[in-house]
């Protein structure tokens, strides 16, 4: 589904991704871990099409199509969803209106008629349950005055509404207490299906207790330096990253 080959990207003059390779198959959940500054969030930004990053080398294909050629909204319409690390506030635009606009744009690109108000409401109610969201949240402005936990929950709610085929979760667990973490993880798990893939970026193994990944990768200095299964996450939790850093840095010399 997603094939990243030798991807390099920089912001201004700073090289952040340096020849990253990753393949994500249908229905798979990949966790990406790594020390601060290793390029995790950059990867999420590049995949979603943020233009602050310049791709200098490599390729990304998504369902056989050149992803890097598409605008951010085209990627979204083709089923790529980014759960933001820092969701943005949009004052005066209700969550419901925002999502209706987004959903109908996505439907339009698939040649589907827009959902009418009633069907939209029904869908919203159903998906709100997934993340135990209060009804009032839909009439509040997008992320405005939301607590950290509410913002993250709102991201997962949007994901549930838009039903993407590839979801990238950028440190969705950061700033969450244990209850919120469980709710968010349950929401994600409910969406797991043989058709949907996930890239879960996280610092901590604890999220992976809830969202159990098929594969775990370690990103360091802009490259995937180690891949494994969920056991790798446990190892990292226990030993930290230093042993990997040493291995990589030693190999380079």
């Amino acid at each position: 589904m997603l094939k990243i080959k030798n991807l390099s990207a920089r912001v201004e003059e700073k090289e952040i991704l340096r020849g990253l390779n990753l393949e994500v198959g249908k229905g798979e959940v990949h966790a990406i871990m790594g020390p601060n500054g290793s390029g995790k969030s950059t990867l999420a930004s590049v995949l979603s099409g943020r233009d602050t990053f310049e791709v200098t080398d490599g390729s990304v294909t998504y369902n056989g199509e050149d992803l890097l050629d598409l605008s951010p909204e085209e990627r979204a319409r083709k089923g790529i969803f980014l759960a933001f690390q820092y969701p943005v506030e949009i004052p005066g635009v209700t969550n419901a209106n925002f999502l209706k606009t987004a959903l109908n744009e996505i439907r339009k690109s698939k040649g589907l008629a827009p959902l009418d108000a009633k069907d939209f409401l029904i869908l919203m109610r159903e998906k709100m349950k997934l993340v135990e969201m209060d009804k009032s949240m839909t009439q509040r402005s997008v992320n405005e005055g939301f607590s950290g936990g509410e913002k993250k929950r709102n991201e997962v709610f949007q994901m549930a509404m838009l039903e993407p085929t590839l979801s990238i979760l950028d440190e969705t667990d950061s700033g969450l207490d244990i209850d919120a973490l469980r709710i968010v993880a349950n929401g994600v798990n409910a969406l797991r299906s043989p058709e949907r893939s996930f890239v879960v970026i996280t610092h901590y193994q604890r999220l992976l207790d809830y969202i159990v990944p098929d594969f775990v990768h370690v990103l360091y200095k802009g490259r995937i330096v180690k891949s494994g299964t969920k056991e790798l996450a446990f190892e990292l939790e226990e030993k930290g990253y230093d042993w990997i850093k040493e291995e990589v840095d030693a190999a380079k010399v």
Binding site: S48, G49, R50, S71, P72, E73, R75, A76, R77, F81, L82, F84, P87, V88, E89, I90, P91, G92, V93, N97, F98, L99, T101, A102, L103, E105, I106, S109, S141, Q158, L162
Partner: peptide
């Protein structure tokens, strides 16, 4: 940031500016 957030949800630049300004 606001425009990109909208883009990432499938909303074009034009519609994003419209949405944000109308909200305002």
């Amino acid at each position: 940031d606001q425009i990109f957030y909208c883009n990432q949800r499938g909303i074009s630049n034009e519609d994003a500016v419209g949405l944000i300004v109308n909200g305002y």
